[in-house]
Design a protein around this nucleic acid. Sequence first.
DNA 1: ATCCTCCCCTAC
DNA 2: TAAGGTAGGGGAGGAT
Length: 669
Amino acid sequence: MVNSDWLVDSLNANKLLDWKKYSLRKAENPISFASVKSRSLSLTGESDIDVLQDIDSDNESIDLGLLASQKGNQPLERKKPMDSSCPGFIKTYFEHSRLHFLSTWKQDLVFEIAEKIKTKPVPKTTNRIVFHIDMDCFFVSVILRKYPQYNDKPVVVAHSEKGDENSTSEIASCNYVARKYGITNGSFVGRAKELCQDLVVLPYDFEEIKQCTTELYNVLYENSDYMQAISCDEAVIDVSTVIKDHTPESSLEYAEFLRTEIKAKTGCNASVGIGPNPLLARLAVNFAKPNSKYFLDDIESVLDTPVGKLPGVGYQAKKKFASIDIHTIKDLQTLQVGKLKQIFGEKNGSAFYNIARGIDTRTLQNKARQTIGSDVNWGIRFKTQDQLEIFMKEFADEVFKRMKQAGLNCNHLTVKLKERDYAGEPWKFLGCGKCKDYSKAVNLDRIANSGDVIYKNSMNIINSFKIPVQELRGIGLHLKENGKVDIKQPKLDFTKRKPKTKVANFKRLKVDFPAVEVGNIPDYLIPSFSQIDPQIFKLLPKQIQKEQEELAKLKKKPIKKRVESKIAVFLDETCVKTITGWILEWCEMLTDIPDTLDMKLVIDYLHDLVDCSDMENCLTILQLIRNRLIKKNGKGPAWKSDTFMEIYNSVDDFIYSKYSNRLRLLDLD
DNA sequence: ATCCTCCCCTAC
DNA sequence: TAAGGTAGGGGAGGAT
Ligand SMILES: Nc1ccn([C@H]2C[C@H](O)[C@@H](COP(=O)(O)OP(=O)(O)OP(=O)(O)O)O2)c(=O)n1
Ligand SMILES: [Mg+2]
Ligand SMILES: [Mg+2]
């Protein structure tokens, strides 16, 4: 029941358009799929957009961003809207984002069911009876319990309190009365108000919703053989043995029993689709709604169903089908596999082929998540780099927090960016509008062990795109475990490069830590001194040798810390400080051109800092080295300045190779 | 051929 | 005012 209006809107003018013009434009310039590739979609005639954009860049953008800066006009001023340039934005944003709740709830449910279900036997895969249960207009049903006077009114749930005519607030859920007016989940309040003057807009009640979900899930879990969590208002259950007699009547009767239970526990209506597999059960629930049940054991009985109703057929696929004159399941059945694959690709092609025939062999599963990430594509407005950095610090901390919570040890970071691709303000209040999308990933070379590691790497990636901060409209941070990457020795000491460490070892980290074989702590976990190449060790200045031996004794402690936190701690500031100390002592002790191996160690270390995006420390150390090797007045032995320049140039080259940025000597001041 | 990176699409 | 998130599947096209 998802509506794609906003997507179309955002791809278009990104402006607050008069609704009538809006509808006209849509009617006159239908989207043509055939000619364009999705990346460069220009959906309507350019001239229209330009004209309309001009109209409101005059009256709207002035209106929106009014700051309370003028001193004289306190009563009249409008507050600056809370956007990403305000510290603390992230928190408020996620507290109010229904889609954030939807996603996190889903993850929680999948996790909970996955744990609980281990005690139940895995059902057979033949002769199944599968129920797909979905609450009717869930968010609305929940809030209507508090407002029974609106039961028979057209009702939606949205943030818009006043529900005024040009509200760009999105409707999370609308009841079936409202649907008669053409309102759908995902439409905008303003538009919905136009379609229906009497529309009642009610607020979210996330607490109550969560409560209902718990009740729903309890009923389903207790009364089924097996279960797959789908969302906060939806689940699939296997009832093949619960229902003894595999007749439609028995199934329907059992469905009615579940619906009654759910109604009793939640006060809300559930609908049930019944089928021999999850696909047909899913299709059946469409026919069951609202407030009923439907038995569907053969796709042939619903061949008139529009292809758009099929799972996996969304906005884009629907357009593709329309463009080749395929409208119903029956139409779809006429297409050969080859044709489908040609249009939708290998996998999707054969998926659609099977769906059209009601074929679905999937079993019910609650798969553990593999990635964790977050996106903010609303309210992203920066004027300065500082604002961006403050935001990113909060964002990185948030994502790191979630990573810990999820129990993942991620070593791979993806940053997603949206860059404004229109003039002025977008159509939706603080929306991202039509954007160019970018993403870039890095291997962290270590498990992300602090918000700071994520922050630094993110900033490097963001900066490498060279998008003016004012143009940013969306930011995403995503983490995963990249088992294919060789986990290198944390290279923050003067250690010889460690040969590749096997993935298997890395994987054990989170499950069975620290039970690693060989009777040793795995060496990729510890900046280990025992593994320093003895030859290199000998070459180190005496002072350093001694310190290393001392430090080696301390090294066992961090392990405990890791066990507790379940997160590997590879580096911390004290570690960097210690090594910086060694380097500086070494600088001061020099009496002649340094040993090449010592040079290499120092340079490697600085490269490592660059590698883990710790530019700050890298530059600081460079600066400290320079201060020790080059006098302010420029005098001093040539070999000293040569030594510094060799280090400096090497680091500069390395940074350039990685980020296409040149250091300037000025940066060190 | 197969893999990798940067996307795009879908569902709720 | 308004809160357009998130995870997984998969494809295009270049690298290997
Ligand atoms: N674009 C959307 C779609 C859904 N939801 C939320 C609100 C819905 O109530 C809930 C469940 O989604 P459904 O697709 O099941 O839709 P409803 O339950 O609202 O209606 P239906 O009776 O069609 O299931 O998810 C949302 O916030 N935004
Ligand atoms: Mg529902
Ligand atoms: Mg649902």
